[in-house]
Design a protein around this nucleic acid. Structure first.
Length: 580
DNA sequence: GCCGTTTTCGGCCCGACTGTTTTCAGTCG
C-alpha cells in the first residue's frame, strides 16, 4: 500500500467523522496524519517494518495501532465502523473541487450518486436543484469542479513554473504603478513541483495592475477578476493567481500566501498564546491591526529571526527562529564547481549523449565564477566493449581533456577533474575494470537499471557500489523521475552510516525531473552529518544554469555552505576525492 | 486523536468566498 493510498484512507475516516459530526479535533488529527503521510519521503510500510510509525508527526498511539492492523491484516475494524451507515459512493466524489464531506454525503444518499460520472449526469440533467439547499448555481459549480478534477493531477516542474512566473512578473513591471512583485506559495518555497503559480504585487493602483495582469500574453481565459485578486488560465492550462495590496501591509500578504499551510498554522498557534491574531493584513493586538511592509518586520514582531521561505514547512523552523539559531543557508554564489557534466566526448554513440565541447563548458564555468569542474561521461557499455576497449576509451577521453586545456590560448585557471559516471550493476559491481578506475580522479556511481529490487537488495547493491575507494559520489540517489516514476527505496539509516564512516558523498542532482536527493532526505542526511554535493548532470553547457534549483533543494534541506562539498576551494575538494 | 522548556490535561488557525438563505454552513487555501 502506498503512502497516497494510506493518506486517502485516513481522509475518508476524517470525512466520515465530519458527516457524523464527531469531535472536530479528532477530525483534524486524522487530516493532519493524512497530510504528514502523504508528504513523507519514506514509505509508511517501511517505517512500520522498522517499528518507527510514531516518528511520523501526527501519528500517535491510536492511529499508529490502526496502521499496524492495516499492514498485518489488510484492513482496519475501526475504519470500517467509522464508515458504517454512509453510502460508499460519497467517497468517490470527495476529490471533486468544491465538494466536501457533507455535500458528498447528501448527493450520494439522496440522489444515489456513486461516481464522478454519475455526478456529471445529475448536474447536466438538472437533478441537483431538486435538493433542498441546492440550486442551478450549484450544478454549474460542480461541473466546473469535475473539469478541474480531471486536470488536477497535473503539477508543474519547479523550473517550468519559475520561468513562467518570471515572464509574467517582468510583464507586470512595465506598469509603473507596480512597486514590488514577488512569487508566492510553493514556488516561493521552491518545492520541486508546483500546483498553481501565485504572484503578489504591492501597488497604490490595484485596478490598473489587475488590468495589466489580465492582459498578459498567453492567457486563455480570465477566471476571476475582483478588487484585490484575479485568476487566469494560460493557454497551457496553468493557472496563475494574482494578489495585490498596498505597500504598507505587503509583508503580511507575502507571509500569508507563501505558507506553507502548516507553517502558518504553527505560527498562528504561537501568536495565539500572546492573544494575538495573524492574517494576510497584519497582526491584530487587542483589536488593533498592526501593518508590516516587509516579512522581516512581520517575523521580528513575533520575536523571531526572519525565516527563509524554503524552511517554512513546520519542521522545527519556528522554534529555531525563536531561539535565533536558524542555519545560514547555502547560496548559489557559494558554489565553486560543478562535477557532473557530460561533454561531447561521446564514449559511445548510443548512450545519453553530451552536446557541448569542453571549451564551451569551460567558458560557461568561467561566467559562473567556478574554480573547478568535473567531466563525468557515462561509462562504456558492457554489451559493446571488452575491458581492453573500455580502458582505451577512457584514456582517449582523458587525452581530450588535456588537449582541450592546452589548446586554449588564454590559459584557463579552472581546474578540470577526470571523473566518470559509472553504473552500479545488479549485484553492486562497477561496470568498468579496475585498470580503468585507476585512470580517474574519482568516480560518480549511480543506478540506471533494475529499479525494482527490494529495499534490502538495493541498499546492499548501492553500498557495494560505493565501497570502491575511487567511488566517492552517489548520483541521483533514489532514481526518481518527478511526475512519472517513484524512486527506489533504500535503508537510509544504513546509507547515511556508511557515508559517514567511509567519507562518501550524496548528490543533489539539479536536473528538473530529478531534484534527487529530495529535500526531506537531504535534511535527514544533513542532520546526521553526511556531506552532500550539488551537481547539474548537464548534457549541454546551457544546463549548467540549472544549478540554482539544486541549491534550492539544499536550502529546503537546511544545508549550510559547510554541508556542501562543492563549496570548498579546489585543494580541499581534491583532498576529499583522494582521502580514503 | 495528538501533543507539550509556559501543559501528561486542556488545549487545538484565520479569513474569503459562495450560494441559498434571512444569519449561516460548507469549502477552500
Amino acid at each position: 500500500m502506498t503512502n497516497t493510498e494510506i493518506a486517502e484512507l485516513l481522509r475518508e475516516v476524517a470525512a466520515s467523522y465530519i458527516v457524523k459530526e464527531k469531535n472536530r479535533f479528532r477530525i483534524i488529527a486524522y487530516e493532519r496524519a493524512a497530510d504528514a503521510i502523504e508528504h513523507a519521503t519514506s514509505s509508511v510500510k517501511d517505517l512500520w517494518d522498522d517499528n518507527k510509525l510514531e516518528t511520523i508527526p501526527g501519528v500517535g498511539k491510536e492511529i499508529g495501532s490502526h496502521l499496524d492492523e492495516l499492514f498485518r491484516t489488510g484492513g482496519v475494524k475501526h475504519f470500517r465502523e467509522a464508515k458504517k451507515g454512509l453510502p460508499p459512493g460519497m467517497f468517490q466524489i470527495l476529490t471533486v473541487l468544491g465538494i466536501g464531506p457533507k455535500t458528498a454525503y447528501r448527493l450520494a444518499k439522496e440522489l444515489h450518486i456513486t461516481s464522478v460520472e454519475s455526478l456529471r449526469k445529475a448536474c447536466l440533467g438538472g437533478k441537483i436543484r431538486s435538493l433542498a439547499g441546492f440550486g442551478e448555481k450549484s450544478e454549474e459549480e460542480f461541473l466546473k469542479g469535475i473539469d478541474e478534477y480531471e486536470k488536477r493531477s497535473r503539477r508543474i516542474l519547479l523550473p517550468q513554473a519559475a520561468y513562467t512566473a518570471d515572464r509574467i512578473i517582468s510583464y507586470l513591471r512595465k506598469n509603473k504603478s507596480v512597486i514590488r512583485a514577488d512569487v508566492l506559495g510553493s514556488l516561493r518555497r521552491q518545492v520541486s513541483t508546483v500546483g498553481d503559480i501565485d504572484i503578489a504585487v504591492a501597488t497604490n493602483d490595484p485596478k490598473s495592475v489587475i488590468e495589466s495582469f489580465c492582459s498578459v500574453p498567453g492567457i486563455e481565459r480570465v477566471l476571476e477578476k475582483g478588487e484585490a485578486k484575479a485568476s487566469v488560465k494560460l493557454s497551457d492550462e496553468k493557472q496563475v493567481d494574482l494578489r495585490v495590496q498596498e505597500l504598507e501591509s505587503y509583508g503580511a500578504l507575502l507571509q500569508h500566501f507563501t505558507g506553507s499551510k502548516h507553517h502558518n498554522i504553527a505560527l498562528r498557534e504561537h501568536a495565539q498564546k500572546k492573544e494575538w491574531s495573524l492574517s494576510e493584513y497584519g497582526v491584530k493586538v487587542k483589536g488593533k491591526l498592526l501593518k508590516f511592509a516587509t516579512e522581516e518586520a512581520f517575523y521580528a514582531k513575533l520575536g523571531m529571526q526572519y525565516i527563509p521561505p524554503e524552511l517554512r514547512e513546520a519542521e522545527g523552523e519556528i522554534e529555531r527562529a525563536l531561539a535565533r539559531t536558524l542555519p545560514t543557508l547555502v547560496n548559489l554564489k557559494d558554489i565553486k564547481g560543478d562535477l557532473h557534466i557530460h561533454s561531447d566526448f561521446n564514449i559511445e554513440p548510443s548512450h545519453d549523449l553530451g552536446r557541448s565541447s569542453l571549451k564551451k563548458i569551460l567558458s560557461v564555468a568561467k561566467e559562473r565564477g567556478y574554480e573547478y569542474i568535473g567531466l563525468s561521461e557515462h561509462n562504456p557499455s558492457n554489451s559493446l566493449h571488452q575491458d581492453r576497449q573500455k580502458i582505451d576509451l577512457i584514456k582517449r577521453r582523458n587525452e581530450y581533456i588535456d588537449h582541450t586545456i592546452s589548446s586554449i590560448k588564454s590559459k584557463t585557471s579552472i581546474r578540470v577533474l577526470k571523473l566518470l559516471e559509472i553504473d552500479i550493476l545488479n549485484y553492486g559491481e562497477l561496470s568498468i575494470p579496475e585498470k580503468a578506475l585507476e585512470l580517474l580522479d574519482g568516480a560518480i556511481v549511480s543506478i540506471h537499471s533494475s529499479f525494482r529490487q527490494s529495499r534490502m537488495q538495493m541498499t546492499k547493491r548501492v553500498l557495494q557500489g560505493l565501497s570502491h575507494p575511487k567511488a566517492k559520489i552517489l548520483a541521483h540517489p533514489t532514481g526518481r523521475l518527478l511526475l512519472s516514476r517513484e524512486g527506489f527505496e533504500l535503508d537510509w539509516d544504513k546509507v547515511f552510516e556508511f557515508c559517514l564512516k567511509h567519507n562518501k558523498i550524496l548528490e543533489i542532482n539539479s536536473w528538473p525531473t530529478r531534484l534527487d536527493l529530495a529535500d526531506v532526505l537531504v535534511k535527514d542526511a544533513r542532520d546526521r552529518g553526511v556531506k552532500l554535493i550539488i551537481n547539474t548532470d548537464s548534457h549541454d553547457a546551457e544546463h549548467m544554469k540549472l544549478m540554482r534549483f539544486g541549491v534550492s533543494v539544499a536550502r529546503r534541506g537546511w544545508c549550510e555552505k559547510s554541508d556542501i562539498v562543492n563549496c570548498l576551494p579546489f585543494d580541499a575538494f581534491r583532498a576529499i576525492l583522494t582521502k580514503n
